[in-house]
Amino acid sequence: MNSLRILVIGGLTTYRALFNWVSPWILVPSLLVMPLAQILLFSYIGRSAGIESDTFFVVGNAVQYSALPCLLGTASTVVGERLQRTLGIVLASPAPRLALVIGRTLPVMLNGLAVSVFGLVAGSVLLGLPVRPATLGLATLAIAVSVFGCTGLGLVSAAVGLRLRDIAVLSTILFGILLLCSGADIPRPALPGWLAAAGDWLPLAHGIAAARSVAAGGGIGGVGGDLAAEALLGLGYGMAGVLMLRLLERRSRSAGALDLT
């Protein structure tokens, strides 16, 4: 009955508690300047190489960059709680686990969505591309689904991060892998086959394809398959992540593996 409350309030409070050292001086560079820099860098590389269009790179990188806040955000809300010694308290509380997990990740997803949409709009403006409200609306939907996919992967990386004790490495490496194989910058024909195949089974590739299609003026009908694939991947990874976390929790209770005190 109070699942929703746990979901919203619990999630927001943790996010604030873990990020309250973050001042605007840190947020602006990492969430606004860095994605823009990546968008511009690859757009100009594209111009210099004479390959694809500005839109190709703006959309690709704006969506791909959301992977960083999603992966790091999810992992650090989960692992950060261990650092702050609150993980034990949270895991031991009778609150429904699924609501807890979704509550923890909801602010992360909203953050990722905002970062991506900002990158898309600001990048388009800087490169002189038109921004049409209808297109932006559809693109936002595609981004939202992509962000959901990345956050699902973030839960898996959080679970692995709990074992490895270093979440930043894993999140960063995953971000790099997604940069390579999601097709954010490299046109699909130029992508080595095994990278493209990996991309198909990771979040983002389908989401980026959908976002590009709507940015080119395509309707929602043409991207249904991609969006469904992206959402399914997110759901799959998310469920795997939650299962791994629960398994870890159970093992920690029997073996005392996590510092739960």
């Binding site: 590389i45 390959i51 790099g176 992508l191």
Partner: peptide, 24 residues
């Protein structure tokens, strides 16, 4: 961690850029 990341992280970007240029 520092040593590995310092090599791996820029390599992702370099590889992406080189793949774009190779496509030409």
């Amino acid at each position: 961690f520092d040593s590995v990341m310092q090599v791996v992280w820029p390599l992702f970007f370099a590889t992406t850029a080189l793949l774009v240029y190779r496509a030409t």
